[in-house]
Design a protein around this nucleic acid. Structure first.
Lengths: 350, 350
DNA sequence: CTGAAAGCGCTTACAG
DNA sequence: CTGAAAGCGCTTACAG
C-alpha cells in the first residue's frame, strides 16, 4: 500500500499534476489551484511552500484541463483577411511577443470578407475553441457583423484600425494619417507642387484616413489636391499600373505621386518605365507599408512604415490586461507612430 | 422533477453536450462517443439515430474535453525559422487547407535555431499543449536535435526539406534541384555561356541541392561551372549585392547570374545598377522563390517557384493520415514540382 | 454491438 | 485563509 503511494510520488516519465504538487506541499489541490491562479487568499508561507513544490516537480498546469474547467481555452485567435504576408507575419510575431510566458498560444484564422460563410466560419472557430480572445487587423476589424457576432458569443476582442471604431479597451488605433502627412510634407519639401494621390480600396477605412492626412498636410503647404490628381486604386499592383498611366497621360502630368500602399507604388513605377521615363529623375514616387521590397527595388522606394509588430503586441496586451488585473481601458500604451523611411525614389524637383 | 428534465433538454443558450445527444438518441454517451470517433462497432441504425440527434442539436464535441481524455490536443503546431513572410503565410494557408473540417487548429511557433533556449522552448510548447503533431519547413526541419526531441516526446511530425532526411511518412521532399536545373537550361537556351551561381547559406541543405541541380544541368549542355563563378552568399539581399560586385568586377565577368533566392537576385541587380549597367541588356538574372516582388520589380524577375501552399497541405495530410485510417507512408501524394516562371530579367545574349 | 463506472487535470460553489 | 465535494465534457478499460 505504502509502496504504491511512493511510486505515485515518483511517477517516472509522467508529468506532474496538481495532485502531485498538493501531496508534496501538503496542502489541498484547491490551494495549489489558488497559487496557480494568483489568488490573494493564500498565506504567504503557504504560497512559498506550494511554489517550491511546483518548482521541484517542474509542474506545468495542463491548459486543456484548465480550459475545460474554466469554460474558456488558452488560445488567442488572429482573424485576418490581410493580403500582405509581411503584415500578417509581423503581426503574428508581435502578438507572440506579448503572449510569451503567459501560457497562451496563437491560433491563426485567415478569412475572406466576401465569403458567404464568413460569419458561420468565425462562429464555429470561436465557439468550438472557446477562444480566450481574438485579434483582428484591417479590414476584418472594420466589419460590423463580425464584431456583433463576437459580442454575442461573449468573446473578448481587440480591433486594429486606422480609426477609433470601438471603446479604447477593444482598439489599437494606428494613426495612419500621420504617416501620410509626412509623405506630403516630404514631397512638398523636395519642391514638388504637382503632386498626385492614388488611393486604395474605398472599402478599407485606411484609404480615407491616409488620403485625408495627405490632403490636409498638402493644404498646410498651400497645395490643393485637384480632382484629376486624386485617383481611386485598389491596393493592387495592377491598379497602380493603371493609375500611373492615367496620371502620366494627363496634359499636365504630376511630378510626384503618393500611393497608399507599396504595391501600387511599384505599379506606378512600372507604368512610368513603360512610358520610357527614368526614375526618380522624371517622377518621384512614395509608397506606404515599407514592405521588404521597398528597400530592394530600383530606385529604392521611399515609404511610410507602420510598426506592425508593435501593433500586434499592443493588441495582445490589451487582451491580456484583465488576466493581469489591469483595466484594459487604462493600460498605458505608446501611441502608434508611423514613420517615413526616406530612400531614393522621391527626389528634389529639377 | 420532470420539468427539470425538460428544461435540461432545452438548455437555452448553452451548447449541447454528449449527454444531450445521448438522451435524445436514447443511447449511452459511450455510443455517441463511438459515433464521433467513427468506431466501426456501431450498428448502422444506431449510428443513424445518433447522427440525427447530433444534427438536431447542432452538437460539436468540445476539443478541450476530448483532448483531456485523449491526452492529446487537437492542435497542429507549425515550428519555423523561415525568414520569408511569403513562405510562412503560404505554408500556413496550405496547412489550413488540409485541416479544414478536421476539427484541428493551427498554432504558430516561430523560433531561432541559434537561440540557446531553442530545445527548451520547443519542448515546453509541445509538451504543454500535447500537440497533435508538428510541421516544420526548412531550416528547422533539418535540425537533428529538434527531431530527436520530438521523437523523445512522442510527437508526430512532418519535415519539409529538399532532401529525404527521414522516413516517407515524416517527409515532404521538395525537389528543388528540378527548378534549379530548369533555370540552368533557360539561361543556356538564351545563349549564355558565362553563367555564374550565387549560393545561399551553407547551413541550409537547399543551397547544396539547388546548386547541384544547376551544375548538373549546365554540364548536360556542356558548360562547366568554374570556381570563380561559384560564389557563396547568405540568402540575404546584402550578400547578393556583394556577390554581384565580386562577379561583375571579374576580368571576364559573367553574362548571366543565377542566385539561389530572390533576395540575392535583387541584390545582384542592385550591384549591376550601381555599376551603371542596364538590365537585362548587360546582365541576365534569375532568382529562386518567385516572391510577389519578382513580378513587381523592373525588369520583372524570372524565378523558380515552389508550390509552398501545396507543400503545406501535403505535410498536413501526412499528419492527418493516421486519424483517417490511412497509412501515411502509402498516402498517394503528388510530387512537388518546382516551375520556372519566365519573365524579362533574363534575355537572350546579344 | 452497447453500457455503467472511473478517470483525464483542473476549477467552481459551498463550507468552515 | 483552507478544504472536501461535485463538475467541466469527453474517453479508456472493463464487462456483458
Amino acid at each position: 500500500m505504502l509502496s504504491q503511494d511512493d511510486s505515485r510520488s515518483a511517477k517516472p516519465g509522467k508529468r506532474a499534476t496538481i495532485n502531485d504538487v498538493a501531496r508534496v506541499a501538503e496542502v489541498s489541490k484547491k490551494t495549489v489551484s489558488r497559487v496557480i491562479n494568483q489568488s490573494p487568499f493564500v498565506r504567504e508561507d503557504t504560497r512559498e511552500r506550494v511554489q517550491a513544490a511546483i518548482d521541484e516537480l517542474g509542474f506545468i498546469p495542463d491548459p486543456q484541463a484548465r480550459g475545460l474547467a474554466f469554460r474558456r481555452s488558452f488560445l488567442v485567435g488572429m482573424i485576418y483577411d490581410q493580403p500582405s504576408p509581411t503584415y500578417v507575419v509581423n503581426m503574428q510575431q508581435g502578438i507572440l511577443d506579448a503572449l510569451k510566458g503567459s501560457g497562451l498560444e496563437l491560433v491563426v484564422h485567415p478569412c475572406s470578407r466576401n465569403s458567404p460563410t464568413l460569419l458561420k466560419d468565425i462562429r464555429g472557430f470561436v465557439e468550438r475553441q472557446r477562444l480566450f480572445g481574438v485579434i483582428m487587423p484591417p479590414s476584418v476589424s472594420e466589419d460590423d457583423a463580425v464584431i456583433e457576432l463576437l459580442r454575442e458569443l461573449d468573446c473578448p476582442y481587440v480591433r486594429i484600425a486606422s480609426l477609433a471604431l470601438d471603446e479604447p479597451q477593444n482598439m489599437v488605433v494606428t494613426n495612419d494619417w500621420i504617416g501620410a502627412a509626412e509623405a506630403a510634407r516630404h514631397l512638398a519639401d523636395l519642391g514638388h507642387r504637382r503632386i498626385a494621390l492614388v488611393r486604395g480600396l474605398a472599402s478599407f477605412r485606411s484609404s480615407a484616413v491616409r488620403g485625408q492626412g495627405f490632403i490636409d498636410a498638402l493644404a498646410e503647404r498651400g497645395i490643393a489636391l485637384t480632382p484629376e490628381y486624386d485617383l481611386q486604386g485598389a491596393y493592387t499592383y495592377e491598379s497602380g499600373v493603371e493609375a500611373g498611366h492615367a496620371l502620366l497621360s494627363l496634359p499636365q502630368p504630376p511630378t510626384a505621386i503618393f500611393t497608399l500602399n507599396d504595391d501600387m507604388a511599384l505599379g506606378v513605377m512600372q507604368a512610368a518605365r513603360e512610358r520610357g521615363m527614368e526614375l526618380p529623375r522624371d517622377l518621384s514616387v512614395v509608397g506606404f507599408d515599407d514592405l521588404p521590397m521597398a528597400a530592394r527595388v530600383w530606385p529604392n522606394l521611399t515609404s511610410v512604415r507602420l510598426p506592425i509588430r508593435e501593433m500586434g503586441q499592443m493588441a495582445a496586451e490589451k487582451l491580456l490586461a484583465p488576466m493581469r488585473g489591469v483595466d484594459p481601458a487604462k493600460l498605458q500604451q505608446p501611441e502608434v507612430r508611423p514613420a517615413l523611411v526616406v530612400r531614393s525614389s522621391a527626389a528634389s524637383l529639377g
